[in-house]
Write a protein that binds this DNA or RNA. Structure first.
Length: 589
DNA sequence: GCCGTTTTCGGCCCGACTGTTTTCAGTCG
């Protein structure tokens, strides 16, 4: 889906955009940002594009002109972009780190570097604690406090990667290792395998009878910037995740990868052990002890005799339990359920037959309704819901009432045309409307009533007191036209916490008003989270897994929403986009 | 810096909020 070179160049273009923003340059930041986005979602490797048709082909990529095509070629040929190296030298700061602090943007980064030589998070914290920031023009005591709070929040999530950032890397590494003929079997383990929303490091297990050869190959594979340790059956390295520098270790920024090589007989027990979670394993070992057995990464033992170990299933079975999917191994009730044969039948990606949250180029999206529909058909969906932004969100080119009605007419025509070739597919007319501070919707009821479905979400004034924010969302749910609440808690992973809301009250209102809650699959959001999903399921509130696609490629992000739903024990029946369109629409208001 | 045409350069990128100001700068969505 995503390609590494494309992504690397996209990252650099995004950085260049930030450097231009520092200097208040008009339009260039958007141009670079747009190009970065298009590269990231491009389904062909730029290297192939270049080989196929040179700079002319590169310039056919939307948002790429002569200048950027040259930069792409430069990167393909030299692995570097001079212009970017020059900018980095001029203001040598860790931009990513600094702008991850809420309230600090590119202008602030530049200003703080020029005035106080602040280069990274550590410098910033030191300066803020010393009270040096409050005296700067346009800063103040309050802002200094906010910066310190922002730093605290970033720190708590530092060193972790979004699953969406890292899964590709994991797949790349395992694909590479698989090439080695000594590798008989390979699996990811740890939090990656449990599909946690953020990942600390990557665990990989390999079955091989020649561990040394595997280890030697592993520590020398492309991208390794540091070998932490290397022994006969295990090794730990840091693998580069692109450009940048880690201020704590001075090694290239990257993710740590631990490898264990095992004989076939222990693969199951090792996989079980290294998949975790730790809490899950502690309970398992206690249960083993109760049965006069001993469980470790080397197997399930009765005395010194191994009685299970080759597969996970065998181990769980011997302990008297059903097999538990990795996503639910968090010791939050799964073991009790497994003992009583009461595990949920978790939803799977193939159960999803539609997506109800795609933005078209009628608002800020990249693709036309036709293109989105074609992409959805290709995935095998039965429907796609176009949920364009509405008028309050000016930057996304939100549509007003008249524009929505016009757009609906156009979608009707598209549907009509589709019927001739794809009888079983339909485009649903929706919108992502805004919940204003008082809970009202920025589009009038008459227009909302003409939609197949209405998503409503909070996009402004997010720092409201708890009671007020809760009431605001409940008011929106009471609107007879509002079917779905988008990204209900508003968090951005590693960036911003949830809004202050009383989630139990939200659930109660959702149940009463028959409002569906969204599981936003965008890797940065994953909102609802696993805990919320489980609560919603228990409360009997229906959910929908949506990608929030702004580009047809984003439709592929659905898997991340499904992972999250599985972590929240969701079953097919809990998720309305597993249902045929007719049944689903009937449930909506 | 790209796009799209009017083929040589103008248009693109808005509004709310916060914290700082006393009319504005920066950030965010």
């Amino acid at each position: 889906m995503y390609l590494m070179t494309n992504r690397e160049i996209a990252k650099i273009f995004s950085k260049i955009a930030l450097y231009f923003e520092m200097d208040n340059v008009d339009f260039k930041p958007q141009a670079y940002e747009k190009a970065a986005m298009n590269l990231e979602t491009l389904s062909e490797d730029v290297k192939d594009v270049y080989e196929r048709g040179g700079d002319k082909s590169l310039e056919e990529i939307p948002g790429i002109g002569k200048n950027m095509a040259d930069k792409i070629i430069e990167y393909i040929k030299t692995g570097k972009i001079k212009e970017y190296e020059r900018l980095k030298k001029k203001i040598p700061v860790n931009i990513d780190e600094l702008i991850s602090v809420e309230g600090i943007g590119p202008r602030g980064v530049k200003y703080l570097y020029e005035k106080l030589k602040i280069k990274n998070l550590k410098d910033l914290e030191r300066a803020a604690k010393a009270g040096k920031i409050r005296n700067l023009p346009n800063f103040g005591e309050k802002k200094e406090q906010n910066i310190l709070q922002g730093i605290e929040f970033v720190k708590r999530s530092t060193g972790r990667f979004l699953l969406g950032e890292i899964l590709l890397k994991v797949q790349e590494i395992t694909a590479n290792l698989k090439k080695l003929k000594e590798v008989k079997q390979i699996s990811e383990a740890g939090s990656v395998r449990r599909r946690k929303e953020t990942i600390g490091d990557i665990d990989i297990l390999i079955i091989s009878s020649s561990p040394k050869k595997v280890i030697d190959y592993f520590v020398k594979m492309p991208g390794v910037v540091k070998i932490w340790g290397q022994g006969p059956t295990k090794a730990s390295v840091r693998v580069s995740t692109g450009e940048g520098f880690d201020p704590h270790t001075n090694f290239g920024v990257g993710v740590d990868v631990d490898l264990r090589v095992l004989p076939e007989s222990q693969f199951g027990s090792a996989l079980q052990y290294f998949t975790g979670s730790k809490e899950h394993n502690i309970v398992l070992r206690k249960i083993a002890i109760d049965k006069k057995l001993k469980l470790s990464e080397y197997g399930l033992f009765s005395g010194s005799k191994i009685i299970a170990g080759k597969t996970e299933k065998e181990i769980y079975k011997t302990l008297g339990m059903d097999y538990m999917e990795p996503e639910i191994r968090e010791n939050t009730g799964e073991i009790e359920a497994a003992l009583k044969n009461k595990l949920p039948r978790l939803i799977e990606l193939k159960d999803i037959i539609g997506d109800l949250h795609a933005h078209s180029n009628f608002n800020g999206g990249d693709n036309s309704v036709e293109e989105l529909a074609a992409a959805a058909i290709k995935i095998g969906y039965k429907y796609i819901g176009i949920a364009d932004h509405t008028k309050f969100l000016r930057i996304e080119n939100g549509l007003n009432e008249k524009q929505l009605i016009d757009r609906n007419r156009k979608i009707d025509k598209i549907n009509h045309k589709l019927q001739t070739t794809n009888k079983n597919f339909r485009v649903l007319k929706g919108c992502e409307a805004n919940i204003m501070a008082d809970g009202s919707i920025d589009i009038n009821d008459k227009t909302l009533a003409q939609m197949d479905f209405v998503i409503a979400g909070v996009h402004s004034q997010i720092k409201m007191p708890k009671a007020q924010m809760t009431a605001r969302i409940i008011t929106a749910m009471k609107n007879p036209n509002v079917d779905i609440i988008a990204h209900p808690t508003g968090r951005l992973l590693k960036k911003r916490p949830e809004y202050e809301i009383d989630f139990d009250k939200i659930l109660e209102a959702a149940k009463k008003t028959k409002t569906v809650l969204e599981i936003n699959a965008f890797p940065l959001r994953l909102d609802l989270n696993d805990v919320h999903i489980k609560k919603a399921k228990q409360a009997g509130v229906k959910m929908v897994i949506n990608t929030d696609a702004h580009d047809k490629e984003h439709l592929n992000l659905m898997q991340y929403g499904v992972f999250q739903a599985r972590r929240g024990w969701a079953e097919k029946n809990d998720i309305i986009n597993c249902w045929p369109a007719e049944k689903m629409l009937k449930l909506l208001k």
